[in-house]
Design a protein around this nucleic acid. Sequence first.
DNA 1: GTGAAAGCGCTAACAT
DNA 2: ATGTTAGCGCTTTCAC
Lengths: 343, 343
Amino acid sequence: MTTSHGRRATIRDVALAAGVSISTASNALNGQGRTNAETRDRVKHIAEKIGFRPNALARGLLSRRSHSIGMITNDTYGRLTLPMTAGVSEALVDHGVSVFLCATNNDPRLARLHLEALLDKQVDGIIFTATRLDLAPQVDLSRLPIPVVYAFAEGPDTSVSFVPDDHQGARLAVEHLLSLGHRRILHITGPEDFAAVRRRAAAYRASLGGEGEVMFGPWGEDWGHEAVHRILTRPEPRPDAIFCGSDETARGVIDALRDHGLSVPSDIAVVGFDNWHVVAAQTRPALTTIDMGLKELGRRAGLAMLDLTQGKPVASGINYIACELVVRASCGTDLAGQSLMSS
Amino acid sequence: MTTSHGRRATIRDVALAAGVSISTASNALNGQGRTNAETRDRVKHIAEKIGFRPNALARGLLSRRSHSIGMITNDTYGRLTLPMTAGVSEALVDHGVSVFLCATNNDPRLARLHLEALLDKQVDGIIFTATRLDLAPQVDLSRLPIPVVYAFAEGPDTSVSFVPDDHQGARLAVEHLLSLGHRRILHITGPEDFAAVRRRAAAYRASLGGEGEVMFGPWGEDWGHEAVHRILTRPEPRPDAIFCGSDETARGVIDALRDHGLSVPSDIAVVGFDNWHVVAAQTRPALTTIDMGLKELGRRAGLAMLDLTQGKPVASGINYIACELVVRASCGTDLAGQSLMSS
DNA sequence: GTGAAAGCGCTAACAT
DNA sequence: ATGTTAGCGCTTTCAC
């Protein structure tokens, strides 16, 4: 991949070895057809032999395209960012585009520093990513001379954004429960000030024809325990299924139900949201849940960025990426026939 | 940050506006002192006013330093990679160095593609990262013309590597248990073919003066349940504490103990390993565990890379980064006085 | 079909 | 102290 003698081979070396001029070598390699076939083959062969690879910096200087983009995230934890980054990379690596990852840790100073470094490096575009949909960047991305795409974040109306389709995902969950014969479905979820939480709750209600009960609370397993405790110590009829706004909450719910001697899914079925493997797969029983397709979301964002950098038109607005239902054991796969089926 | 008229301001624009030559402008900005103070101030002021920022591509072409490095990881999940990347970035961003993140997904083709793109972009160095210490890169990094640093991976002897100090971490855990008065400490851990597992087990045995019992098994919570079942259904005296090789295993252990009517930490104390927040903080009781300091590990790797790219000597070999004990509730904080203290 | 020359934006000799 | 010149590695007119 490199010449044995330190410095990489340049096009000059190729030209020299082939006995042609630099420009002919360039023509031959980039195959503009304006070269003699014999010469072209010879040059190409020599280039390969001495391991010539064009210097992307030099190319970028001339073409004004660095073939690199920046990704700015406030997530230090990685659960959301890495799958998305992998998706972005996957879409771009075949086009020779690499991704700078910048973790701002929610620090405006860091965000500014990273942004400046990216602009200095002439990135072709920037993808902004957050840990929650309604979190704004800590720097102004609206007046940049390069395209900006929002992934798992909602940019201004004129920009291009990709977010999970929380509405469809929640509907998927509820309809799955309905199809299994459950009718008294409860929704235990996160804090109402999260956009995603409100959307999932709205979709849940809509799927139930406007009925249903939503319990908002903090994220985390504790809230699952607490919520279960509340519903089991009150007089009303018990739910026969619970749709949770996150896998962590669902895990708390399932553990609490077991503590109370109720069995999942036969007494109460549970569906989660996130498909966060370490939680969903380890819950007993393993969690039926909604996968947000983060890698696919990243891939889509990457493809959009590719189009933008190539000057192709991309429709502005928010793109909702479909969620998927992942069926595990916490929610019986049998259709109907449940004892608590009557509403 | 940018001129209003599309293209970024170049040093030419600065020179023009200041009425000096390009090289004088360059001198003034890079303050080699070889400029008249008045001119320098004027140039600097104008540069700031029109928002001039040097083109890093052009600079890199000349200086042969791109001020960017590549990070190659096989982790799609992010639990290890993102904290480390954040640490690397943190160490480098102040020096204007940005980080390309390349997720290979364990695919050699992807790894090769990414590596080529990085080399083409003239990265100043490459940091290789893996999800387990003894995992080798899918591409040959040994004959690269640029420095390579291994983070959470062990490179060849001649290279620079940073790994968690599993030995010290495990000792920390066991000594903590000993200091609380526990004597019959059991070790339930992962598969023996993991280097980290063997090290933790060895340190555990050493801390116990060569005594102790190690139960190897698959990662995951199930193994925790299974292992607890085994020790509770056999005749020998019960352990009064369990040191687990991962937080997930520890969670399984704690849940299983509770199922068997044993209480943590009063009957049996438990310590985990990883400080993986979603697991450790949600366990009931919350998990006392070992934090591997991944961000610090990344920071150290970043600093080493910085030195290497500046031609400073860096000692080759493996650097062990100290782990930290994080005390939560699964392991009483009281000293001695435990009922089971007698060995 | 091929090569000489200009230039991307910048820095660093070397003159002046 | 400042300006002129050359050149980093590459692509691209434009002569020949």
